[in-house]
Amino acid sequence: MKGLLRGLKKTSLARIATYFSYAHYRVFLSVLTVTSLMIFMHTAILIFMLPPPFSTGPFLAPIIALTSFFYVFVIVYLISVFTSELSTGGALLFLSFPLSRVEYVFSWILNSVVAPSLLYLLSIAIPVAVIDPTLVLNISGVEITLAVLEMTAVGTVIFLLSLITKNRKTALSAGILLYLVVPYLGLIAFSYFKYSLKIDLSNTPVFWVYEALYPYKAGLFTYGSVSWSYNLAFPTAILIALILAATLFYSKYRLEVV
């Protein structure tokens, strides 16, 4: 751990910024296209379909449920670009320059997980602000925070798996499984237990793991029975920090490029 901290001290923001801007330059067009499409969809939904907002509850749920389903493919695609760069030798070029493995991997986390999650947030905020700036103040910060954290948390897990396996197929299958299959199957299972079998799993470790990985969906599931507050975000924030530390640790001590 000491070594990792010492390594982080040597990390150069300038080099991260340089590599990040290069990696972003390569995928800019696809990210821009999908984000623009999201802005258009969010605008249409907000204008035609949404009921009047109220600030305390998850009023954006219909939007997020619909559009995040498509948007996560951007994250999965970007992680797969990273994985193919690692496995086909593209990474070798940049890692033969004064760019550390930690800086390289961190730039890709920013590029493939953090930036798209924030762009998704913007794709909601921009139409809301354009339609009626006062609406921005009415959006629940908790809801947005949970949605973005969920996207980021799952993204970091997929990223770590892809980094370790250096396999594009892993990125794609883990992406589909963790973004599209597990969260909804989980909700179906929890609902079945709760409403059909009358067994409440919300105080079991299985649900805690689900809650840490999918805080937004878990929050919706428990909405009404659990306080809808920023407390819901803490386990996820800790999970992200742990996965990030594991990713940087792996990059520093184990990542080899052939």
């Binding site: 590599y19 801007s21 390569r26 593209g90 070029l93 033969s96 004064p98």
Partner: peptide, 26 residues
């Protein structure tokens, strides 16, 4: 500086742009 055996370069980038980014890292 190193020239790897069968180096892989990103094909969709202009030569100048690629070299500029690499130079910036140094």
């Amino acid at each position: 500086g190193i020239l790897h055996e069968k180096p892989i370069f990103p094909g969709d980038v202009k030569v100048k742009v690629l070299l500029k980014y690499l130079a910036k890292l140094k």
